[in-house]
């Protein structure tokens, strides 16, 4: 509880991270919040942006290779954020802990790009979001645009700088009957990008080219 207050207080003080509920209300419904990912601070900013009762039953999904590293980071990941740690290279059953958490009734925060992209436009989404959506039709899929977190703590540096960040929370989406996996994933990514475009009309929309393609 104290550590939660410290982490939330520090996040607010340094980077703000105010939530704007544009397309959904902060209710206790089970949800999968999915967001763009540019910074190691994304997890904490989105988690801290939720009102306390929601925050306590919303578990961020985080990469084991980063968050299980070092005693302090591990303490925060497991005891404060109650993160679901996953093995990024683990194939299909890497999703098992997520299915478990959803079956227990928790909400999740996930970053479907599977890693941090090089530019402001999100990378193409990985299929995990689609599989979770099909297996848990009761959970609402809510797109989130995290704004400027990548400036506060960019990839490659370890000290965050104070920049006012925002979490724009959009309207829920769901896979349509008969919709293909790729069509749904494109639509989910578009929903996140649309929120970003509302702040930055000149945001590049297309996903960045993979470097070795």
């Amino acid at each position: 509880m104290i550590l939660e207050a410290v982490l939330v207080g520090l996040t607010r003080f340094l980077v703000g991270g105010r939530a704007y509920w544009l397309g959904a209300q902060p209710t206790s419904r089970q949800r999968i919040y999915f967001a763009n990912h540019r910074s190691n601070a994304d997890t904490v900013v989105l988690w801290a942006a939720l009102p306390p009762p929601l925050r306590r039953r919303t578990r961020p999904v985080a990469a084991q290779d980063y968050w299980a590293h070092g005693r302090l980071r591990r303490l925060f990941a497991l005891d404060v954020l109650h993160a679901v740690l996953i093995d990024r290279g683990g194939g299909r059953d890497a999703l098992d802990p997520l299915h478990e958490a959803l079956a227990e009734g928790c909400s999740l925060i996930i970053f479907p790009e599977g890693g941090r992209g090089p530019g402001p436009a999100p990378l193409p989404f990985k299929s995990g979001l689609y599989h979770l959506a099909l297996a848990h039709p009761g959970a609402q899929l809510v797109p989130v645009w995290l704004d400027d977190v990548g400036r506060a703590l960019p990839k490659g540096v370890s000290i965050p700088i104070p920049v006012s960040t925002r979490a724009l929370i959009g309207a829920p989406i769901a896979p349509d009957p008969g919709e293909t996996r790729d069509a749904f994933l494109t639509r989910a990514r578009d929903a996140v990008v649309a929120l970003g475009l509302s702040l930055h009309p000149d945001l590049p929309v297309a996903p960045p080219e993979p470097p070795h393609a």
Partner: peptide
Amino acid sequence: SFWCLREFLSLTPTRLADHYALAAAFY
């Protein structure tokens, strides 16, 4: 002053290359 600087730099486009200069300004 901290809040004013944060607001100012949030609206001002800055780059990754300025990260340590910005950190020195704040900290």
